[in-house]
Every structure is written in C-alpha cells, then in structure tokens.
Amino acid sequence: MKALVLIASGQLEYQETAEPRMQPNEVLIRVQACAIGEDDVAGLDGGSDLRVPPLIMGHEASGVVEQVGGQVHGWRPGDRVAFESLVYSLEDRQVRAGLYHLADAKKRVGVSCQAYRLDGAMAELIALPGHLLHRIPDSVSFDQAALAEPAALAAHALRLTPPNLNQATAVIGCGVTGLLLIQLLSLAGAAPIIAVEHDEERRNFALDSGADEAFSDDAGVGERIRSLTAGHGVAVVFDTLGRADTLQTAIDCLDGNGVVNVVGFSDTSVQAPLQQMVERQLRLQGSCGVCGEFPAVLDMIARRTLDVDFLQSIKAPLSEGALWFDKLVRNEQKLLKVILHP
C-alpha cells in the first residue's frame, strides 16, 4: 500500500509500504480522509520523543471497513467509520471505571516512542480494534468525519468545566481546538465569549464562530476582559496553548473561584502563580483527550449544529502530503486543517 512515511527528522516520503497485519479483534479500514493534526506538525522535526522515524503519522481520519476480524461484532465491510486514536485494553481498570482516556496501558495511533510504535492513518489502510470505531451518519462526509476527533477533544474539555447560562468565558488560542470550543460554548449558552489570539485572521474566525469579542494577546488583555465583565473577570478560561505566558493571562482574566481548563500544552515547564490561586480560590483543570464524545459530535455535525467545514483549508492527495506539511510548518498560508486523501 502507499503511505506518507516520516523517514527522518523533518523528512516525509510517499512510498510503498507493507499492509498492516490485522489481529482477530481488529478491523481493517480503507482510509478515505486524514487531517494533518497540530501534533503531527509539531513532531515533524524529530524534536518530540513521540515521533521517532520511521513512522506513518496521522490520527484524525475516517474510512470504509474493508475486513473484519473474527472476534469483532457489529461491523461489516462497507461500513463508513470514524475512529478514535487511543488504543487500550477493555480489561484495563480505568477503562472498566469509564475512564478509557486515562487507561494505565495505552498506545496512540501515529506515535513511535521508546515503548512502542503504532503506525497512523496517512496510508491507504489501517487496522484498529473494533471498539474504537464509530459509525458515520449518512449526511456526514468523510472529510467532515475526519474532524470528529478534534471536535470531540473540544467537547471533552467543555464537559469537564461547563459554563452556566450567560456566564462569561474566555478561550486563549484560536486554532482548530479553540474555534471548536467557541462554537460549543455558544451552543451551551455562555456569554460573553471572549477569544484571545495574536493573529487577526484567526480573531475574525473566532467572531464568526460565536465569540462576542476577540482581543489580541498583548499585555493589556486582562484589563480589557475585566472592563468587559464589570471588573469581575470570567468564570472559566480554556487555554489551548498551555504556555507559561498563557497560564498567567488566564489567571489574570479569572473571577474569584474561577477555573483554568488547560486543553493544549507545550513541552516547556510552567510555573504556576500559587499565591494568586490560593488567595482567589482558583482551580487548574487539565483536559486529556476524548472519553465518549465521538457519537455526540458526529450527530451535531450531521444536524449542522456544529460547523467543521470552515476549518478545511485545503484538500489534497496524500502524495502531496510532504508539501502541505512544509506549508503548515512555515505557516505560509495561515492554514487551519489540511485534509489528505489516500
């Protein structure tokens, strides 16, 4: 089969590779669409210990069932599916407690590290356990379904720290996750929703997605947010960037008893201003992956209550994947999502 393979740091090659060997508990899927994730781009340079070459990257994808293992029930060839990218055993203690995203023993699709290597979906075929699959509604395209995972990630964060009706909320960082969060917050009745983003074009995307205000991330953003909320600040901040400066901005924006939900993170250590957090009774909440949100977001995409179409900047053949990775790394066209078609 053909696949886009990370063969060395910063070097992708479209090449012929062996087809995956399907296990009895797995389903073989012919990939129809695979989005380039932000973590894929970040891991391209080899600086991450989670993308050790050689590796087929990609985990935001959809496709058609090609073959079903003997231990799998409920799926048959021809079924249209989206799939989660966290592989875990159904016998894991956290899985049994309903927290499969926190499984003790887990692997991520499109990751190669010291412990394991699990090729991803930037290929014609991928084999995955049957319990990771979700049926795509008839009205949802493969390209739309490929964005179910980032939508589910945003939905999971919202589920952890849901705003009350008409409660002031802020989102720091208006990449894909931030823009999806803004849509979901608007649907949940949060108000005002305030976006914080350095890029003007993305601030405009935020306003189109349902934000009431969109501010640049300069030194005065905390004061502007307080002036917009009668001097109080917001109840919840979703930080999709996870840096030291964005954490401080989030805390500066919060009302007393507020919460910072960290959805994204960088690989740098961050010092928390504990004195401010104690004196104002602030909480720091991490949001990890997805846990049960896939069916809801697929249904919302089908009902057109959640818009993922505007996120699709480019659709291209998988053979051109290296070119589009390079453009994303260079941020040449300020792209949001590039969808690759094997």
Rank of each mutant, 00 (worst) to 15 (best):
A146L: 06
I194G: 03
F205C: 11
V290L: 08
L340Q: 07
S269Q: 08
G98Y: 01
F83M: 07
R280D: 00
E13D: 13
V109Y: 02
F310Y: 14
I251V: 13
D199H: 14
Q312N: 06
L311E: 01
A3P: 09
G231H: 04
A235D: 07
S287F: 08
R243Y: 14
G110P: 06
R108V: 09
V308P: 04
L336Q: 12
N25I: 01
A230Y: 14
T17D: 12
A123E: 11
T17P: 05
D39W: 15
L118T: 05
K337N: 06
V27I: 07
A191D: 11
G233Y: 02
H156V: 02
R51D: 12
L318S: 08
Q11Y: 11
Q11G: 00
M277G: 13
V259Y: 02
P162K: 08
A230D: 15
L4E: 10
E197L: 05
A195R: 09
Y88A: 01
V87F: 07
M122L: 12
P192Y: 03
L165E: 11
V68Q: 06
S287P: 05
L160P: 04
V109D: 03
A244P: 05
A316W: 09
P163K: 10
L102N: 06
A127Y: 05
R303P: 04
V290G: 01
A191N: 12
G189L: 03
R159H: 11
V31P: 09
D218P: 04
L128A: 04
P162R: 13
E279D: 13
P162A: 09
A302V: 04
L147T: 01
S186A: 14
A170R: 04
A152L: 06
S216T: 11
D255N: 06
G189D: 03
S186K: 15
R117M: 03
G289W: 03
H341I: 12
L6E: 08
Q32P: 11
D307T: 03
V260F: 06
R93H: 11
C253H: 02
I182N: 05
D239C: 03
C288K: 15
R203E: 11
V5S: 08
R93Y: 10
L102R: 12
L180M: 07
R21L: 12
A61S: 15
A61K: 08
S216I: 01
E223N: 09
R226G: 00
